[in-house]
Amino acid sequence: MTLLSTHRLHKDFGGIVAVNDLDLNIEKGFITGIIGPNGAGKTTSFNCMTGLDVPTSGQVIFNDIDITGLPTYRINRLGIARTFQNLRLFKEMTVFENVRVAKHRTSSAGNLQKDSGLWLEKLGLWTYRDERAKDLPYGLQKRLEIARAMATNPKLLFLDEPAAGLNQTETQEIMELIRSFRDSGLTVVVIEHDMHLIMNLCQHITVLNFGQKIAEGSPESVRNDPQVIEAYLGKEDHAAR
């Protein structure tokens, strides 16, 4: 079943086309990966689907509702949460407050304190609850951003490069975390350059280049797709010569 789909999604910035007639289908209950070279339009398509950018044309349908161009907070309330490529935490606020602000709409006043605490515990951040977000080590900051997004009780979670800057152990932990979300019924979309993570985590992969979809399918089929290889490695005409 499709949870989110885009129809001929198009975004240009003063003549520079970032997303070009993109048709995406995000299947419910799966982890979908979006990959592509730098500047392929991955983040911009995320932004269009989460309301940070208003698409130039085209549609975004989530749960049968047309959410094209809705403000970010409305889209979040409908059930889409996200993280950012460059961390955007509430830096001067404590770890606990970061989560509590997000949890507010999904917990009753009486349970807010308790629920926020439970979340932190689940993500292994409880010990740091009174630290200011900016004082956390980088890996934990990334984790906190995921915790904050999840605190809004989303049906669909967008992760923009969750493993960037993390070491191998941390990446492994993040992968476990994402899997556990999926197992509890969440749909996840991941942008990532770490092919190990993408290939091991995702059931479905979409490849973008120059704002267009050039391939999609299972990790296996994408890995062997000649167009994908070409996008990543460039045309191999030197070999032909």
């Binding site: 907070y73 949460a81 606020m93 602000v101 507010h104």
Partner: peptide, 21 residues
Amino acid sequence: HWGRGLEAIREDELAAQSVGL
């Protein structure tokens, strides 16, 4: 909650929107 929301906006307005404020 309102007060914390205001602080969140001061810290990062886009992020505040992205968690439903």
